[in-house]
């Protein structure tokens, strides 16, 4: 019988980091307010007490400095788990991530590895002020040299953070902040798969619904509603936005003939766009309808009182499902 425990996503990430730090004393945790406070979402709570201030420490409020020093520490053999406090605060570090972190292994012809994890709480739905609700994953998925992943449940959160820390490549680890308190069972004995495998969360026969991160509960809800109306939807959690597990998606689309992709990010030039393009390329003759994307609009994230209208919900996903099925 497997050893399992129920944890909210935030605690599962915490437990995963704790495990990685116990296993390898080169793993460091730093960022803004991560030490005594445990981060503004308490994801790193308790780590300072357990591992001490040489391994868990607050950095100055300087995102480029956080990533730039994580790079130097990687050159020295340390594996940093660096927290960027909110999605909208990552841009001061963009240069260090895109021009340095992502390229140094290539620049050095493999002499240097960059085992750096950058944790970013992302997405909206928490009624926050500007810059606290964004979905910037496409910037990083577009950048060669990075790996970009996002768990949608506690078990994945626990295992994927450990897999990210074990990776010898830089990983941008997007945490679905509005789901931090969503509870789920964590199997403490063995990981569900590698961090880059997509997961079929619900089997179905009439339409494939691909999503990831904070939109997964919404996608599952949509599938449930559809089932009550006799429509069978297969729900796939990407888990990894770069690289994307296309074989799992293609296999599903070959079975269902229809694809809807749902994400919180602005729709144009998005991860969803990449999935759509690749499916058109690899499963063209299996498609019974155009691939449809459900996302947010191509405008800045609105003030919180408008975000419910801005973010896709189960109804908007079902609207796309109806369009696909009636095509």
């Amino acid at each position: 019988m497997s050893n399992s425990v129920e944890l909210p996503i935030a605690k599962a990430i915490n437990a995963g980091i704790q495990k990685a730090m116990s296993r390898n004393d080169k793993v460091l945790v730093f960022g803004e307010d991560v030490a005594e406070l445990g981060g503004v979402f308490r994801v790193t709570e308790g780590l300072l007490a357990e591992f001490g201030s040489k391994r868990v420490f607050n950095s100055p409020i300087a995102e480029s400095g956080i990533v730039g020093t994580a790079i130097g520490l990687a050159m020295r053999g340390y594996r940093s788990v660096a927290e960027i406090q909110f999605d909208g605060f990552v841009y001061p570090a963009f240069n260090q991530i895109v021009s340095q972190l992502a390229k140094i292994t290539n620049r050095s012809e493999g002499h240097l590895s960059m085992p750096v994890v950058i944790r970013i709480p992302y997405g909206g739905g928490i009624g926050a002020v500007e810059h606290h609700s964004e979905s910037p994953e496409a910037y990083f998925a577009h950048t060669p040299g990075l790996r970009v992943i996002s768990p949608s449940n506690s078990n994945d959160a626990y295992w994927m953070i450990q897999q990210a820390i074990e990776s010898n490549d830089p990983v941008i680890f997007f945490e679905p902040k509005r789901r931090y308190w969503q509870k789920g069972m964590v199997n403490l004995d063995s990981p569900p798969s590698t961090m880059h495998d997509a997961a079929v969360l619900r089997e179905g026969s009439q339409l494939t619904l691909v999503s990831y991160g904070p939109m997964i509960p919404t996608a599952l809800q949509a599938a449930e509603v559809a089932a009550s109306e006799g429509i069978s939807i297969e729900v796939i959690d990407l888990r990894s936005m770069s690289p994307i597990d296309f074989p799992t998606i293609i296999n599903s689309v070959k079975k269902t003939g229809r694809l809807v992709i749902a994400s919180e990010a602005s729709t144009s030039f998005s991860v969803s766009a990449e999935v759509a393009a690749k499916v058109a390329e690899l499963a063209f003759y299996h498609l019974e309808a155009p691939v449809l994307r459900v996302g947010s609009f191509d405008v800045p994230y609105p003030p919180a009182k408008l975000e419910e209208l801005f973010l896709p919900d189960a109804d908007r996903i079902l609207e796309a499902v109806d369009r696909s099925l009636s095509y």
Binding site: G65, V67, G68, T69, G72, A74, M75, R76, Q96, Q100
Partner: peptide, 10 residues
Amino acid sequence: VLHATGYAMG
């Protein structure tokens, strides 16, 4: 300059 700083921290 930041890489050097991180390295020196290490």
